[in-house]
Simulated assay, not measured.
Amino acid sequence: MYPARTLRAAALAALAILTLAALPGAALAHRANVFAYVEGDTIHVETSFSGGKPAMNSPIEVYDAASGALLLTTQTDAKGLGAFAVPQAAREARADLRLVLLAGEGHRGEWVVKAGEYLADQEAAAPAGGAAPQAAASPAPQATGAAPAALVDEAALKRIVAEAVSHELAPLRRSLAAMAEPGPTVHDVLAGIGYILGLFGIAAWMHSRKASR
């Protein structure tokens, strides 16, 4: 018969091993982070693990957030960066886009790009009422000594302003997205606790075996 102390230590070790088995790799794995921002008609994506290492050459699936339909699949580069044009189907449906990063070994991250983010530039550039831009009228004869009247295509002006604003706001959008990066989840915390308990249980079991000899 084994001493009660040895049996308790063995039971604790077994429980710890079962806990670790129920959380395969969760305690040791890096979390996959993804965030995206819009610049013009392109969505830029940046990815990384919790330690800052980029999620290299990892697939990114782009879904219609409402219907769940897969719209396209792209991939990050060696720096963990990716980019893709907004799908026409998403524009027509004015759909939010759900980006899913598949970083391997069960690691994944998600980000949602709201329709308003990529439609803002398009709507700003569109002529009022959907009418096609009209050719500029010929200038009326000016009185001698009068300054010539400035002729500006309103639709073209809106387009120029929208592009300039989008370009200037891109770094700010990126910074805000990075600040919104989520921290550890409850599952991550529990996984870490399970890993620590597992190591403690195994150490207690080994110590008990030595003491019983």
Rank of each mutant, 00 (worst) to 15 (best):
5 R>W: 09
9 A>C: 06
10 A>G: 12
11 A>C: 10
12 L>P: 10
13 A>T: 01
14 A>T: 14
14 A>L: 13
16 A>N: 08
18 L>F: 05
19 T>D: 13
19 T>P: 07
22 A>K: 06
22 A>T: 12
23 L>I: 01
25 G>Y: 08
27 A>K: 02
31 R>E: 11
38 V>D: 01
39 E>D: 13
41 D>R: 06
44 H>I: 05
45 V>T: 11
49 F>M: 13
51 G>K: 02
51 G>H: 05
54 P>K: 10
55 A>D: 09
56 M>Q: 14
64 D>T: 03
65 A>P: 08
66 A>V: 06
67 S>R: 03
75 Q>N: 13
76 T>E: 08
77 D>I: 14
80 G>F: 02
84 F>W: 11
84 F>L: 14
94 R>T: 05
97 L>P: 00
98 R>Q: 14
99 L>K: 02
100 V>P: 03
102 L>F: 09
106 G>T: 13
107 H>C: 11
110 E>D: 11
115 A>F: 08
117 E>H: 09
117 E>R: 04
119 L>H: 08
119 L>N: 05
122 Q>W: 01
124 A>I: 15
124 A>F: 04
127 P>R: 01
128 A>C: 04
128 A>R: 04
135 A>H: 02
135 A>F: 03
135 A>S: 07
135 A>N: 04
136 A>R: 04
139 P>F: 02
141 P>W: 01
142 Q>S: 06
144 T>R: 12
147 A>K: 10
149 A>K: 08
150 A>S: 14
154 E>T: 14
154 E>S: 15
155 A>P: 00
156 A>G: 13
157 L>F: 07
158 K>Q: 07
163 E>W: 01
164 A>K: 05
167 H>I: 08
168 E>F: 09
172 L>C: 05
174 R>Y: 04
178 A>L: 15
178 A>W: 14
179 M>Y: 09
180 A>S: 10
180 A>R: 03
181 E>C: 15
183 G>R: 03
186 V>T: 11
189 V>H: 08
194 G>H: 06
195 Y>P: 00
201 G>K: 00
203 A>W: 04
207 H>G: 09
209 R>C: 15
211 A>R: 07
212 S>G: 13
